[in-house]
């Protein structure tokens, strides 16, 4: 397993480079123009000069190589500088956003906290409520608990967040006035009161997203448990006189985890991708909103960097899932 992990990690480097090239070419091919948001009153000659100032005049391969150097060399050095107070490559050109002319890494760092608070928290809560719901639903298949769980999960998944979010705002912000409808990104948690405020402002976006995540994961959990509850080994375990709790929670659960682990691992990178619609609705202004604004504004360095970080996480978490398969079911061998 260790050699497998090392081999996969080494293989990940060319894979990621290839992915970054495909993303770059894709963005290059996509229609759009960083000047689309500039007012129509600015004449075309001026726009052309602004494009050249962004470096758009250079050929594609030069720009790609520049980005690779900036991303893999200059930006890590800057992180080291920030951590240890050194000053490597302080003058080198960093990855600069075309929209704001500010380093992409700074903007991402600025937006990480609210994304982790809202999207990360909702994912965590979603997983934590999905697993027990899935297990109980399967164990007591077609009970009232299962039926309600199915109904809520299906409605939660099929009604889009742009609707549930607005509905919550209308009920709890406009009519009842309990929670703020606009997320304050500058809020800092320093004491109990500010912590309560923070909780208040994340309640609505977190519940919208958690419902959506939980709906999906609980369905997979339930289906997988059902598959395993009728297996021969369960009967054997019961016949051996094992306690029902041990049978279900140890033997069945362990064998049912493979699809669930897959789904959860696929979901973790999306946490860092943010939640585009929910962030828009509650004005959380996290990474998801940044990504959509950058795509709409054709801010290629920003889109490229965000997507690539996303790609790294996908490769990493899929590797983790593959390793977990081996832990959950030792018969799975890759070597």
């Amino acid at each position: 397993m260790l050699t497998y992990t090392i081999r996969r990690l080494v293989l990940a480097i060319p894979t990621l480079l290839f992915i970054s090239l495909v993303i770059f070419l894709l963005l290059e091919l996509a229609p759009g123009d960083p000047m689309a948001n500039v007012p129509l009153t600015v004449p075309d000659e001026v726009k052309q000069r602004m494009r050249e100032a962004l470096g758009l005049g250079e050929p594609v391969h030069i720009r790609y190589i520049k980005w690779v150097i900036q991303f893999f060399w200059v930006e890590p050095l800057h992180i080291i500088n920030n951590l240890f107070g050194t000053s490597f490559a302080a003058d080198a050109q960093r990855v600069i956003s075309w929209q704001s002319r500010s380093p992409v890494a700074d903007i991402i760092a600025e937006r990480m906290p609210q994304t982790l608070w809202v999207v990360g928290m909702s994912y965590l809560i979603g997983v934590l409520i999905a697993l027990p719901i899935g297990i109980i639903s399967a164990y007591k298949q077609y009970s009232w608990f299962d039926q309600i769980g199915t109904f809520v999960a299906m409605v939660g998944f099929s009604v889009p967040t742009f609707f549930t979010g607005v509905l919550l705002i209308v009920i709890f912000s406009v009519n009842l006035g309990w929670f703020p409808s606009i997320y304050d990104t500058t809020h800092e948690v320093t004491d109990w009161d500010s912590f309560v405020f923070q909780l208040k402002q994340i309640v609505m976006p977190v519940s919208v997203l958690a419902l959506y995540n939980a709906a999906q994961i609980s369905r997979f959990m339930r289906a997988s448990m059902l598959d395993n509850l009728n297996q021969d080994y369960v009967r054997t375990a019961r016949a051996k006189g094992l306690k029902e709790k041990t049978v279900v929670m140890v033997h069945v659960l362990r064998n049912s985890m493979i699809p669930v682990v897959t789904v959860i691992a696929l979901g973790v990178p999306t946490v860092f991708g943010g939640a585009i619609i929910t962030e828009q609705v509650f004005k959380v202004n996290g990474l998801g909103q940044m990504l959509i604004i950058s795509i709409q504004g054709n801010d290629l360095p920003m889109v490229q960097t965000l997507t690539f970080i996303f790609a790294i996480l996908i490769v990493l978490f899929n590797l983790i899932a593959d390793i977990l398969y081996g832990v959950l079911d030792p018969r799975i061998r890759y070597d």
């Binding site: 992915i19 495909v22 091919l29 229609p31 759009g32 696929l266 889109v303 996908i314 899929n318």
Partner: peptide, 25 residues
């Protein structure tokens, strides 16, 4: 397994909106 799963990783990583714009173009 290796090639197909790396392909899956690639598709997971591609940004949806630009991809669709290109397909439609």
């Amino acid at each position: 397994d290796g090639p197909l799963m790396r392909l899956t990783d690639l598709f997971l990583a591609l940004p949806l909106l630009p991809l669709l714009l290109v397909i439609i173009l």
